[in-house]
Structure formats: C-alpha cells, structure tokens
Design a protein around this nucleic acid. Sequence first.
DNA 1: GGACAATAGTCCTTGTTAGAACTATTTTCC
DNA 2: GGAAAATAGTTCTAACAAGGACTATTGTCC
Lengths: 150, 150
Amino acid sequence: MSRATVVPVIRELARCYQAFERASDAHIRRMGLTPPQFDIVATLGNTPGMAFKELGSRTLITKGTLTGVVDRLAARGLVERAASPDDGRSTIVRLTAEGERVFREVFEPHLAFLAPAVESLPECGRKDLEKRLRQLREALEKRSDELARQ
Amino acid sequence: MSRATVVPVIRELARCYQAFERASDAHIRRMGLTPPQFDIVATLGNTPGMAFKELGSRTLITKGTLTGVVDRLAARGLVERAASPDDGRSTIVRLTAEGERVFREVFEPHLAFLAPAVESLPECGRKDLEKRLRQLREALEKRSDELARQ
DNA sequence: GGACAATAGTCCTTGTTAGAACTATTTTCC
DNA sequence: GGAAAATAGTTCTAACAAGGACTATTGTCC
C-alpha cells in the first residue's frame, strides 16, 4: 500500500536535488572549487570567521571531513586557521584576502547561474514548494529521531 | 535581486533532501548495507539482471564508482557478474539467491519506514510537491545543458 | 575487409564522507 | 580545587564520487 504513495514523492525529490547538484557542481567546478569547498567559502564570506564547530553545523559537513576540506583550502591560501581567544580547544577558520577575492568572484555569479531555473517557477509555485518541502523535511526529521530512539 | 528569490528555494530543497538522506541512510545502514549498495540491490530486485551501463544510468552511479560498489557486493555474495551473450564488451550484473533474499528483507521495510513521513502530507500536498519538483528539475536540467553547451 | 572511431568496463588519482579512536582543553560538580 | 564528564579538532579506516587513461571489443565506412 505504502509503495505507490511513497515512491513517486521520494523519486521526484531525489531527481530534483540531483539535477540541482549536477548543474550546481558543474558550474562550481568550472570556477575551480569543489562543491564542499564552495560551501565553506560561501559560508565564511562576509563574516569575521567562525569556529570549526559552527562551520560544520552550518554546512552539514562533519568534523572529520571538515578537517580535510579546510586543509586543502588552506593549502591553496583561501582560508587560514587562528586560535580562538575564548576557548583553547577551538580553532577559528576565516577567509584570507585571496579567499575574499574568490568569494566575491564566485558567490553572486553562482546564484545568477541558478536564478533562471528557480525563476522559471511562478511566484506562488516557489512559495508552495518551499512550504511543502519544509513540511516533508520536518516529518523526515521526526523519522530520524524515532529511529535514533530505538 | 536574484539572491532573495533563489536562496530560500534552494535551501529548502537541500535541507529536505538531506533530511531524507539522513533518515534513509541511517535505516539502510542498520540493515547492513551502504546507501549505494541498497540502491544497486533495489534496482536489480525483480529483474533478470542488467548491464553495468544500464545499472549505472538507473542509479546515477558513474562507471568508475560502480565497479567498486559491485566488487564489494560480489565479495559479500549478493550479486554476481556474467558475460553478456550479445556483446563481448558488456558484463551483466544480477542478484544471487542470497541477494534476492536481502532484497526482499530490505526493500519493502525501507519503504514502510519512510511511509509515515510522506503520508504526513495531505494527498493534495503530495501531488503539488511532485509537480513543483518536476518543474524545477526540468528547469535545472536546462541550465546544465546550457552550461555544457558553452 | 581492414583502418578507425565508438563503446563497455577496469584502474588510477584526488577529493569527499561518516564514524570511531585519540589528544588537548574546558566545564561540572562534589 | 580536583576528579570526571563533556567538548573541539585531528587522525584513521572503509567506502563513495567524478573523470581520465587504458584495454578489449564492436561498429562504421571507405
């Protein structure tokens, strides 16, 4: 019974996200970054930097992965680590001047690249979509919680 | 101008998909498979097997990655390779008897696990969501094509 | 019918991913 | 104020991911 209901929604969700990823990733790679690297640079843009912990929770990149991504960005001179003044365990990550330059060069153009697709939906369609996606997300998060509690 | 329009939709899409992935992956891993392995087993279930090429295009796993995933499933005895009778270059992948058993044990229960989340949306909400996701996907695919053509 | 382009899989490299073990620091609480 | 719990990052392992080089076949077309 559940199959006929569940599969089409999940399939469209997965296909739509994968279409987004394919378009987005291809554009990002053309600009010389990997998708997680772009995510980090975009998150750090227009901020004074932030702790690993916060950067990870904003980008949904787990700490073990984040170390490596930040290492590669640091090796390219786009970000730097600094000791936190408040907490000796914590490390602040921030864009270098070169990182700021890349951010400016890459962030808005990427949104501009995606805009035509999003704007092809009518205004009310975008609002609908946002609302339904939020509902489904909340329901899925509840399933995760229930699984974790078992 | 584009930023205020584009970001919220993309954010909800990404968050919803990631919530799906988190829930789905956690459940799949509990059943002893990785997500790509589940994808392969689910795709091969109720079929006589198929070529690498087709399996890759159905699961959106690229050939280089697929070799490794199939290797690991074969090592666990869930799938097997067979020469194609039609084309000497082609290899057929199919479930073993054990793979069929795992498919039956894992596929429907996974849908049943996801069902409560999807069914928390009203019927009309699901239809709406599917429609909007399809529209957005088509527009995103167009962006990919336009990028590739440049 | 034989050179030559196209195709199917494998292998390799670089990067991402989660999660667990580990170290160093901080917080909590008796 | 000191032991114990919690927390922040790093390191490690196994797996996935894309894409390009490579091998073996098959198809094409003069």
